[in-house]
């Protein structure tokens, strides 16, 4: 049995079920409790689980992530929620210098089973500081796992895996996906971290993407199908550790690739994936690999300007036609 639910519900269910399953799981962050979550992900949690396990924090991201690290080191399984991923920069030291290095640096003595949930993405007229998609930055650091699902099914299953993981996981949500619906089984399931997945089969071109851009790429693929072009879409789902096998397997069949990300092009996900395709499947390249990404400006407030800087289905369609 499965059911159509929203991404918001899928994430909420994952946290709820894990908190029911394991007393050691708790959530802390700005407005997660009495308010019910800035994006209503934890609505109803405070009344059900109480203030001990649904902890409102001061607006102090280093304390949220640092506190989560400490609690994780001594055996709990905290979910530290950052109201938006833009505020992760305020906690950057704790994410990259502490969480990511604790196990390695002390010779394997410590574990940091911490999930840092952070929502990002542009397109909501929030201006330059609140609209970023800086996922690639986090994927740079060995020691961190970085997960960014694009469907409710994957969001629920991956978040459960993240909560059960003994490693620190950066779990990146996209604000404009919360209302997206998808099929989710009613029973218990998990999705493994570190596995890419073909979300749409096709023979002509490989589109590699993740998170919000999966949705946009699917729309582009539908358009292309009307013109007789069948795009295969590989959803990375996890940015670190990166699973290239489905990408390379697809590329060896299609010999053409377009990589789509919402963040900026320079030093981005597309740069990494295209380099790895050239390294791993150079003999199969029939056309230069294309990258679709955000225009390299801080996102503006004005709606038309902001939209023009973000990648859209038309950009993907155009890139696909260029590689064919």
């Amino acid at each position: 049995m499965s059911k159509q639910i929203t991404m918001r519900e899928a994430i909420s269910q994952a946290i709820w079920e894990e908190m029911e399953r394991d007393e050691k799981v708790f959530i802390m962050g700005e407005e997660v409790g009495v308010w019910g979550g800035t994006y209503a992900v934890t609505k109803g949690f405070y009344d059900h689980f109480g203030p001990k396990r649904v902890r409102d924090t001061p607006i102090a991201e280093a304390a949220i992530v640092g506190g989560g690290i400490g609690a994780a080191m001594v055996g709990l399984r905290p979910i530290a929620e950052l109201m938006t991923i833009n505020f992760a920069f305020v906690a950057m030291n704790h994410i990259v210098n502490e969480a990511a290095k604790m196990r390695y640096m002390f010779g394997g003595q410590m574990s940091v089973p911490l999930v840092i949930r952070a929502v990002g993405g542009g397109g909501r007229q929030l201006g330059a500081t609140h609209s970023q998609t800086p996922d690639a930055i986090f994927a740079h650091f060995p020691g961190l796992k970085v997960v960014a699902p694009g469907t409710p099914y994957d969001a629920k299953g991956l978040l459960k895996s993240a909560i059960r993981s003994d490693d620190p996981v950066m779990f990146i949500e996209h604000a404009t996906l919360y209302q997206t619906r998808g099929e989710v089984p009613e029973g218990e399931y998990t999705v493994p971290i570190g596995k890419s997945k073909i979300q749409r089969p096709g023979r002509d071109v490989t589109i590699v993407t993740y998170s919000k851009m999966l949705d946009v790429s699917m729309k582009a693929a539908e358009q292309l199908a009307k013109e007789g072009i069948e795009a295969e879409i590989v959803d990375l789902r996890t940015l670190r550790p990166l699973d290239m096998e489905p990408v390379l397997e697809s590329f060896r069949r299609t010999n053409r690739a377009v990589i789509v990300e919402e963040g900026w092009r320079s030093y981005g996900i597309g740069s990494e994936i295209s380099a790895r395709i050239y390294e791993g499947a150079f003999d199969y390249v029939d056309a230069p690999i294309k990258r679709v990404a955000q225009t390299e400006v801080p996102l503006p407030y004005n709606r038309a300007l902001e939209q023009s800087a973000l990648p859209h289905a038309e950009d993907i369609i155009q890139a696909v036609k260029e590689v064919l």
């Binding site: 001990k52 304390a63 640092g66 989560g68 690290i69 400490g70 609690a71 001594v74 502490e98």
Partner: peptide, 18 residues
């Protein structure tokens, strides 16, 4: 990292309180 272990210490203490 100077001072960075203070929030971590608070979290460890939270673990014991919890």
């Amino acid at each position: 990292i100077v001072g960075a272990h203070l929030p971590i210490a608070a979290g460890m203490a939270l673990g014991d309180q919890y």
